[in-house]
Simulated assay, not measured.
Amino acid sequence: MEWLTAPFEVAFVQRALWAGVLVSAICALAGTWVVLRGMAFLGDAMSHGLLPGVAIAALLGGNPLVGAVVSAAVMTAGVTALGRTPRLSQDTGIGLLFVGMLSLGVIIVSRSQSFAVDLTGFLFGDVLAVRESDLLLLAVALLLALVVSVLGHRAFLALAFDDRKAETLGLRPRVAHAVLLGLLALAIVATFHIVGTLLVLGLLIAPPAAALPWARGVSGVMALAALLGATSTFGGLLLSWHLSTAAGATVSALAVSLFFLSHLASAIRHRRRTHLSRSAAGPVHTPTTRPNDI
């Protein structure tokens, strides 16, 4: 038991655990819609699109979080505007914004000779350096994400399965899509300094995708995704402590591993159910014609 509990007796690991639980809850709320709508590429683009704002804020001596908010707003507005262009597919617009914002960020970073450490923190985060103020920020972000999810649930649900039906019901799908982008941006901005932009997708996509075969309804997927994310955080911190590996990367790797285990178990369950249903139906007898019946 000491092997299991010893790491969490240290204050900074305790804060990392609480931060991971809060991040998991935020990512579950936004990530469920990302998975249902097939928006993983958009999530990746938005996470990398934060780099210019963070770089400019850092170079000017400002708060990188403010720069991330500005970049997220630019990405959200850009994706929304390009999505209304009839001759341009949404993936094309997202890809162009992704490359443009990332290139701009790299150009800004290349102008500074002392940016390597900050860039590493931007890409990979530092979950073991969480402060109490970070926990407060994550708690506020979780509350805001919860409010948006509750108020927009009906519109998001209609949007996820049928855009035209959402329009028929008067749910204003374009507005709902913009709000959903805002929810995704909130999740990424609030968590990138904890797990990094390259690893945030691990908690944003893997837990909801792992929960999908086992949960009934969107709320069930969100709840199970939050639980799987918290489990990944606990297990990842435990493994990183004893194996001396990067904490954030270990957490994300464990979350992805749980996704593959979940779908493997789901495939095995499906095969077993198919086999049992065939066995219960019994052998299929082909009727034969006897000479006396003619």
Rank of each mutant, 00 (worst) to 15 (best):
288 T>Y: 12
47 S>E: 02
115 F>R: 09
3 W>E: 05
181 L>W: 10
269 R>V: 10
56 I>R: 03
86 P>D: 02
260 F>K: 05
151 L>Y: 14
201 L>S: 02
25 A>N: 02
9 E>N: 04
228 L>Y: 10
109 V>I: 11
76 T>K: 01
43 G>N: 10
249 A>G: 14
105 G>C: 00
245 T>N: 10
244 S>C: 02
236 G>M: 00
235 G>W: 01
145 A>C: 09
42 L>I: 15
135 L>N: 01
140 V>C: 07
155 A>R: 03
207 P>C: 08
62 G>C: 05
60 L>K: 10
178 A>T: 13
190 A>V: 01
283 P>C: 06
151 L>K: 15
165 K>I: 08
221 V>G: 04
58 A>C: 09
17 L>P: 01
65 L>P: 04
92 T>K: 11
119 L>S: 10
70 V>G: 03
190 A>F: 02
290 R>G: 05
165 K>Q: 07
40 A>I: 13
13 V>A: 03
180 L>T: 09
131 R>I: 07
273 R>G: 06
104 L>E: 04
16 A>N: 00
208 P>K: 11
292 N>V: 13
77 A>S: 12
42 L>G: 06
91 D>P: 15
225 A>I: 10
178 A>L: 12
8 F>R: 02
290 R>W: 13
280 A>Q: 07
249 A>F: 05
160 A>T: 15
272 R>L: 03
192 F>M: 10
1 M>L: 08
168 T>C: 09
230 A>Y: 00
278 R>F: 07
150 V>K: 14
20 G>M: 07
40 A>Q: 14
71 S>D: 07
190 A>R: 01
29 L>S: 04
190 A>Y: 01
227 L>S: 03
6 A>H: 11
124 F>N: 00
281 A>G: 11
81 A>W: 15
100 G>F: 15
160 A>V: 14
293 D>L: 04
220 G>V: 08
85 T>K: 13
94 I>C: 07
100 G>N: 10
77 A>T: 13
58 A>T: 15
18 W>N: 08
174 R>C: 05
261 L>N: 11
106 V>M: 14
273 R>Y: 08
101 M>N: 09
258 L>W: 05
6 A>N: 10
55 A>Y: 01
261 L>C: 14
4 L>M: 12
289 T>I: 13
189 V>C: 06
167 E>C: 08
208 P>N: 10
178 A>Y: 13
62 G>F: 15
237 L>K: 10
239 L>M: 09
79 V>P: 04
63 N>D: 12
59 L>P: 14
230 A>R: 00
149 S>W: 00
224 L>K: 12
85 T>S: 08
240 S>A: 13
